[in-house]
């Protein structure tokens, strides 16, 4: 099972999980290969690969444009684009490539692990707060927590926390449940020989397709909410 046991090891007093390191490295490599392959021959008249990456850039820029102040969009394009391809590939990886050795997961969707999704949402929160400091200065940033009135301070703090949690847990829940269900369909297929194999094959395919769709949607939702979050930090209250 993809999220059953995970092999871990200790290094520099930190704990690492093998599955996340391998999967993360694969996602990283896939992302690099994607951007490398699609940008070999950049021309005025875009060819196949260039069309794909330009469409993606336009897409993520469009998402950011809707949520950030118009003059700030330029500076956040790269962040939105990288976040999107990283999360998209993370969501899809486990659907098509799930590897276990001795019952321990080696390759799976990194986003089916809460540690990874919380890392991503934490990065968004930190990035949003950093953007706020850069935009308003330290004083402006600190006073934004007591707006509109001083007793809103706990509510504002709680809002940060809830953003952090919802952003990370939403994507984790959906990707994790997707993989769990795939796993269960596989168990069904294995249970009674050829008959259940034949029965569960179309179910598996349908669910895989649906999960691929969900994975894409979740990647979109993640950058959408992240940009909303950053945008709110950048806007005048």
């Amino acid at each position: 099972m993809g999220n059953g046991t995970v092999a871990t090891f200790q290094l520099f007093g930190l704990t690492f999980s093998v599955a996340n390191l391998v999967s993360g490295a694969i996602v990283f490599l896939l992302a690099v290969i994607f951007v490398f392959a699609t940008t070999r021959h950049i021309t005025m008249r875009p060819s196949k690969g260039q069309n794909v990456i330009e469409w993606l850039m336009d897409f993520t820029n469009g998402v950011l444009k809707g949520n950030l102040p118009a003059n700030e969009v330029r500076g956040y394009g790269l962040w939105g684009f990288t976040l999107f391809i990283f999360i998209f590939l993370s969501n899809q990886l486990g659907l098509f490539f799930n590897l276990m050795i001795n019952g321990k997961a080696i390759v799976r969707s990194p986003t089916s692990d809460p540690v990874v999704t919380m890392t991503l949402s934490m990065m968004t929160v930190i990035f949003a707060n950093y953007s706020s400091i850069r935009r308003w200065g330290t004083k402006g940033y600190l006073t934004s927590f007591v707006k509109p009135l001083w007793f809103f301070f706990p509510i504002n703090i709680f809002e940060e926390l809830s953003s952090f949690l919802t952003l990370g847990l939403r994507i984790f829940g959906i990707i994790y449940s997707g993989e769990v269900l795939l796993e269960m369909i596989w168990q069904l297929a294995e249970s009674h020989g050829i008959f259940t194999m034949a029965l569960s094959l179309p179910i598996e395919m349908i669910w895989q397709g649906f999960s691929a769709f969900l994975g894409a949607i979740q990647a979109y939702v993640f950058i959408m909410l992240s940009s909303v979050y950053v945008g709110r930090k950048l806007q005048e209250e």
Partner: peptide, 18 residues
């Protein structure tokens, strides 16, 4: 298993590198 905190750093670094 509940918290492999190293992964956080790994992902943060790899994201920035990416």
């Amino acid at each position: 298993r509940t918290l492999y905190n190293g992964d956080t750093i790994f992902y943060a670094v790899s994201f920035i590198l990416l």
